[in-house]
Design a protein around this nucleic acid. Structure first.
Length: 552
RNA sequence: GCGCCCGUAGCUCAGCUGGAUAGAGCAACGGACUUCUAAUCCGUAGGUCGCACGUUCGAAUCGUGCCGGGCGCACCA
């Protein structure tokens, strides 16, 4: 709606000879904080002060008399230079109808050809279970994917498996050592190996099923490779199970190892070499990333002959580019922010626009219980896994809290709040809104013999209460609010919007009755509006991956 | 030392491509259940928007410099 109003304003300015191209992008049409300031407000008068050499208030007053003649506005007011616009009732009724008809896809773009993008998230090394940071990345990546899909992009969700480097080798050595220790308790464990209990579990499993095979292998190296491969697959399965706990899935799993096996790394580096961007120094090969904005050049092939992680990553991103995405988003832990300039440099060296690659950084998750921070250290293996947290507080709470803050700010996860069945807990607040509507619908069917689930018509002009208008107003801008949040990569806005809608519903519920005995028209009108709210809530829940509960 | 993020009410945070009196929630205090679920609602109180300059009609928002916290500055991934 904001868009349409802005177009209308520009149209009016042009007609009146008051249009200056440079102000177009600055014209804002937004929902004012105060209800009394109208349905929408615009700042155009301020933007014209320089051109017209008049005070904002005077310009606004002139524009008011012109805008008043437009039928989409029922009223135009000027306060302190702001032009406050009131929209006609009919407009809001259309929005409510739309929400009822579109079910749990309210406001979703019908045009699904806006473009094709790729969102890569989690991409945890398959060397252990998922921890909370991965969980937050999973939730953020998943919601972002849902959001882009909502606004009309074809989204491919991708998990990059780092299965080629030292970490996997270490994993193999660790598992192999635990395997050997079953028969020889003194068998040495690698110094910087993985200490978690899960390593022993994997070793036991291998011992149970593959003991003969391993012992008959002549070389220890082959045995370690076998263990690495076995453990990797075992842990990837675990990771997939953990992700399923929070409804996160992927379309594409790309293996770093396969990039090497299919010659992608060689090919990418050959191309860069042909452009004269690679040179040798100190026995290693370097890429001239400093030519493309990086602070210094980077090693791509170490002096021991092996490639760096960076080399594979270049090939990986070039591969993504060749797949033809309009742009890509990587969801990374904030500890990787220093890595971004170099990857961006490498990508631009291929001639790719730097706007093509985007990164959303995820800051740390700190866990609190009983008012105390729960300290976690990966080295000691002493950390809470995503699975443990989900088992303790439930899927919906984990998803909601991970989603509720700007990804690029630290997140304090308070277990006590997530567990609280009270108004302290926003998850219950939003779910209760949905459950309340479901409850009203059940009652309507049982006691009034009217099923709100059926298709029915209603006279929406009966919806004149303040709380009703407040809800309609909210619904009228919801799809645009979602779109705006999407394009800014701000998944946490979804939780804000959901909370806001729930709040308006709760207020409405408290002030007014829906199941009215002697006024069928009003009954239907109100149930119709409730249905619109329910659908909007379901749409938002679906974006987040939260269950819309029917009763609580 | 350099780079990135953060600093807003007692707590957790919105708001940040400049806009109206800086907003929520929790906690505190005071109210509301012969009603479709009180897991709710209504009200009160609570602020040098880290500090200082600057940019302009206007700064929490932009710029510069400080202060405080986190992260990163590998031939690790």
């Amino acid at each position: 709606m904001k868009k349409e109003v802005k177009i209308k304003i520009v149209e009016v300015l042009k007609r009146e000879g008051l249009f200056y191209p440079e102000i177009e992008d600055k014209i804002k049409v937004e929902t004012p904080k105060e209800e009394s300031y109208g349905d929408l407000a615009t700042n155009v008068a301020f933007l014209l002060t320089k051109h017209l050499k008049q005070k904002p208030q005077d310009i606004a007053l002139n524009l008011k008399t012109i805008l008043e003649k437009e039928p989409i506005f029922s009223k135009v007011e000027v306060v302190n230079g702001f032009i406050n616009l009131f929209l006609s009732e009919n407009f809001y009724h259309q929005v409510v109808k739309k929400a009822v008809l579109e079910k749990d896809r309210f406001g979703e773009s019908l045009d699904k050809n806006r473009g094709k993008i790729n969102i890569e998230y989690v991409s945890a090394n398959p060397t252990g279970p998922l921890h909370l940071g991965h969980g937050r990345g999973a939730v953020v990546g998943n919601i972002l994917s849902n959001m882009y899909s909502y606004i009309g992009y074809k989204v491919e969700r991708e998990f990059y498996i780092n299965d080629a480097g030292n970490q996997i080798k270490k994993l193999g050595q660790s598992v192999y050592a635990r395997f050997r220790q079953i028969e020889e308790p003194d068998y040495p464990f690698p110094e910087d190996g993985y200490h978690g209990e899960y390593i022993k579990d994997i070793a036991k499993e291998i011992y149970h099923y593959e003991r003969e095979k391993i012992l008959s292998m002549l070389s220890e190296e082959d045995a370690i490779d076998f263990c690495a491969e076995y453990a990797k697959n075992y842990l990837l399965d675990k990771i997939k199970e953990d992700l399923k706990l929070i409804n996160v899935e992927f379309d594409i799993w790309t293996s770093e190892k396969h990039l090497y096996e299919h010659g992608k790394v060689e090919a990418a580096l050959n191309f860069l070499n042909s452009k004269g961007l690679i040179y040798e120094k100190d026995g290693a090969l370097w890429l001239k990333t400093s030519l493309y904005g990086d602070e210094k050049d980077r090693v791509i092939k170490k002096s021991d002959g092996s490639y760096t992680y960076f080399a594979a990553d270049i090939a990986y991103h070039y591969d993504k580019y060749e797949r033809g995405y309009d742009f890509i988003i990587n969801v990374w832990g904030a500890d990787h922010h220093g890595y971004f300039p170099r990857l961006k440099a490498a990508i631009t060296a291929f001639g790719v626009s730097e706007n093509w690659i985007n990164v959303v950084f995820i800051q740390l998750v700190k866990l609190f219980k009983d008012g105390q921070e729960v300290k976690m250290s990966k080295r000691s293996g002493d950390f809470i896994t995503l699975r443990e947290l989900v088992e303790e507080v439930g899927k919906d709470a984990v998803v909601y809290f991970f989603a509720s803050k700007d990804p690029d700010t630290h997140l304090n996860f308070d277990i006590d709040v997530a567990l609280a069945k009270s108004n302290e807990n926003p998850v219950y607040y939003v779910q209760y809104a949905h459950a309340r509507i479901s409850s009203v619908f059940r009652e309507a069917k049982e006691k009034f013999g009217f099923d709100p689930e059926s298709d029915f018509e209603a006279d929406l002009s009966l919806l004149t209460q303040e709380e009703e208008k407040s809800i309609m107003k909210f619904l009228s801008t919801l799809p645009e609010d979602i779109e705006e949040a999407t394009l800014k990569n701000q998944p946490h806005k979804i939780t804000n919007l959901t909370y806001e809608l729930a709040s308006r519903l709760h207020k409405y519920y408290y002030q007014h009755k829906f199941l009215i005995e002697n006024d069928e028209n009003l009954l239907k009108a109100r149930l119709y509006l409730l249905k619109a709210v329910r659908n909007a809530l379901r749409t938002l829940f679906k974006l987040m991956g939260i269950t819309p509960v029917e009763r609580m």
